[in-house]
Amino acid sequence: MTDELLDVKNLTVRYFTEEGVVEALDGVSFKISMGERVGLVGESGCGKSTAALSILRLVPLPGKITGGKIFLEGVNLLEISIDEMRRRVRGSKVSMIFQEPSRALNPVLTAGEQIVEAIQLHQKISKSEAEERAIKVLEEVGLPNPPELLKRYPFELSGGMQQRVMIAMALSCNPRLLIADEPTSSLDVTIEAQILDLIKSLMDQGDISAMLFITHDLALISEISDKIVVMYAGTVAEISDTETIFEDPKHPYSKGLMEVVPDPFRGKRTFGTIPGDIPSLIAPPSGCRFHKRCMYAKEICAKQRPTLERIEGENYVACHLF
């Protein structure tokens, strides 16, 4: 019996824009257990970031969480006060790192100031103690000469170093869950590999317990996650363990995704495509949001939204085929 850390149930998020109401997330559900590494995959605009931000209740205006529950260690985060979120959850129980570290770090504050701030926020220690802790955590992420680094401004660091600083900052208060929103998408491939290695070693060492890793890169996700949540147009299509997703995807969209990626070792040398376009989320398609592009679509797919059903073990699919 695994310890459940995060339980997202039926999360619905809407953006109330001038052009109309965007149904960004509609009934998104997934779970993360202690020590589990979950990958969240999907095309751009499918709602991955929104889902992640919702956990910390950081959905930007004009967006609003309009339904569902998010249980963290049994407590529904959507029912506690924002103040509680700040004191107990953000930065302490759940930390988040973002895509472009050069933009996610404050340009007018030194790296040291930003990390120490995070530390002192959740731990009642003096400034010098916080600085010591900051140095330690910078060492852990493999940065050279931490005391010097504390005095540097973000723009003085390379992309890889900046991301390490972000990771250090996120880990400084030992969070139970680390949310990584496309942390390597803006980095060079070689740096990307380094950061991934760092994350993996941190996971192995136990510095990162549970992780939600968001990306659109399938190859990446296979390396780093135990379980994969596939999202499409604001809904969850499939949740399966990594092997199953790659070997035997159930949802037609997942299937399509797997076929898109070339796999020279298996003789597949070209990019496949999934016909059609991502639907507009202001007027999303009725029924299953994928039905217009699905080659297996049946009549019922246009009429009724499929719910997430357990297939086997901890794997779920939302599709009328099952």
Binding site: L58, M96, A104, L105, N106, P107, L109, E117, A118
Partner: peptide, 23 residues
């Protein structure tokens, strides 16, 4: 983005505005 980061750390909105944003 860095404002979102600041909020994600758990800073009070006042701190976020005065220390991070205003500067």
């Amino acid at each position: 983005d860095y404002i979102t980061t600041a909020r994600a750390k758990g800073l009070s909105e006042r701190r976020v505005i005065l220390k991070h944003a205003l500067r």
